[in-house]
Design a protein around this nucleic acid. Sequence first.
DNA 1: GTGAAAGCGCTAACAA
DNA 2: TTGTTAGCGCTTTCAC
Lengths: 334, 334
Amino acid sequence: MGITIKQIAADLNLAVSTVSKALGDSYEISAETKARVFEYATKMDYKPNPYASSLKRGRSGNIAVVLPEVSDSFFSSAIDGIEKVAQEKGYHVMVYLTHEDVSREASIIREFRHGRVDGVLMSVSAGEKKPDHLQDLSASDIPVVFFDRVYEEIQMTNVVTNDFESGYLAAKHLLSKKCKRLAFLSLEGNLEIISHRQKGFEKALSESGIEGREHSIIVLGNDEQENLKKLASKFKSKTRPDGVVGSVEKVAMQVYSTCHALKLSIPKDVKVIAFSHLAIASLLNPSLTTITQPAFDMGKMAATLLFKSLDKKGMKPETIVLKSELIERDSTRM
Amino acid sequence: MGITIKQIAADLNLAVSTVSKALGDSYEISAETKARVFEYATKMDYKPNPYASSLKRGRSGNIAVVLPEVSDSFFSSAIDGIEKVAQEKGYHVMVYLTHEDVSREASIIREFRHGRVDGVLMSVSAGEKKPDHLQDLSASDIPVVFFDRVYEEIQMTNVVTNDFESGYLAAKHLLSKKCKRLAFLSLEGNLEIISHRQKGFEKALSESGIEGREHSIIVLGNDEQENLKKLASKFKSKTRPDGVVGSVEKVAMQVYSTCHALKLSIPKDVKVIAFSHLAIASLLNPSLTTITQPAFDMGKMAATLLFKSLDKKGMKPETIVLKSELIERDSTRM
DNA sequence: GTGAAAGCGCTAACAA
DNA sequence: TTGTTAGCGCTTTCAC
């Protein structure tokens, strides 16, 4: 371990507190002493022990990022944004993955109430159970900002995109391409973000006048093999959809796999549009029409809001809405 | 913040040390007292303040993961593996991104020598500067495990794949597909992992008997636009390669972009094989032949080795080699 | 079997 | 301007 303040004090014949103040550039300390201390500290590569400071000040300098997974391109970009802001602010980022497991999420979060982190950024995991732990977290005095997958039951600071509108536009897009039987690929587990997208989707359908029974909602889970089976059977049936909205990236990729396996042509047999942030959407076979969220900016924004409320406690919860963008590519071309 | 040991002691009319020992399940404490303490602690949801323990024991319970980026599928899978092991061990994972910036990497690492983390997992960033900071880090008493992008000058524990052999096989693969002008897409910045792959590539060429001037090494950088320009000019030239080895995922995607833009057919005009961990390689246009590293397992292995050396200090540096797998897809089919 | 006390490294009120 | 001291919450010797 590095040198301590105590050691510096001894070496320089000063009191510990003098050194501490000098390092903190306190007005109480003479320029001369400060210079001596700084010089020596630099020379010895002094860095404060983070845990001693944390203990004393009640701040750790760490923030937590709690996510379902990191291999989704949305989340990895969001981390990028978060990490950037954190580095600028001198904070350290602890990453926790829930893998959509609510009980794991709960036990992760419980750890936070005892000082390991000063604030939490979170995208909640899908799951059926009542999220008491989120209530607890928000009731604690540690600031939390939700992003993307928020939980509206509790009033918190949220960073989201225009999901309802995007779901609406996605369906509209497919309808404009003459699709007759639309399917919305949902994700099991009560995510508000999914249901907003779905409601937008449904609104477009009801406006279209085509009656509902032609359309379908397919609820997929966390098990890829299961999903592929479910999709295959749906896509082999008489009522195969000719237009599909993927509510998250993963399910869109599963549709691609299914169509490849069944030798269905995208976009001829099935048109596909998906909520996705994939940088390489344009390189897919065929290139994928996406509703792309500003993932990096959402991460940055969420982190910025978190730091703001760390600076001055007691900020009012607010909800920031960033816009997603529909980018048409070959998977929905006529 | 939660309740403290002191508070428990007061509430239960015990000494602080008694409570501490009881919670530590010390043999000195009577079963009865332990029971009382445990019960009360559970009821009050007591969790030790991590910084107080850290300060006292000299261990933080945190590990650092230092990576170039998180949006590469190799790294995100590796994080997955690391995080899994860490969660099992009760450790917390701090993520730091260098964005291939050596000086940023250096300043990140410097922070570690003062107790914030107990150990470091690292994949070094590409860069020209002499990595003194890595020397320093390895000289410090904090355990470090390098994975994938290691730095062989210093004897450390490493987790790598069979890069030389894979580079060799990649070139062999292209040669077996009748490619005549091979190109190796390198990454600027002296990464050993890249040069191993390149040396394997070159060995295959020299064995093939085809003379070297037909082949090329294209060195790409961190700026995507620059790279695309460089690739476009290369691919428009007379000496356009008809077989390409992408040394990392990103450059392979840039080749795809370039070919799409120039309307070159993969695999007819150019065959492409790349080091990549993309789950959706099979969904690309065309599906991409890959050399796939066991990213998740490498992360797990690296973390496991780190925890092992945290448990008992002074372990000998070792190098674990995991095997990559060549998966042929359409991008190299004849 | 329990408690008192020192101290991890740092900060901050107070004294000199 | 500098130094003394107490204490953040916890662990760990050592005494009772």
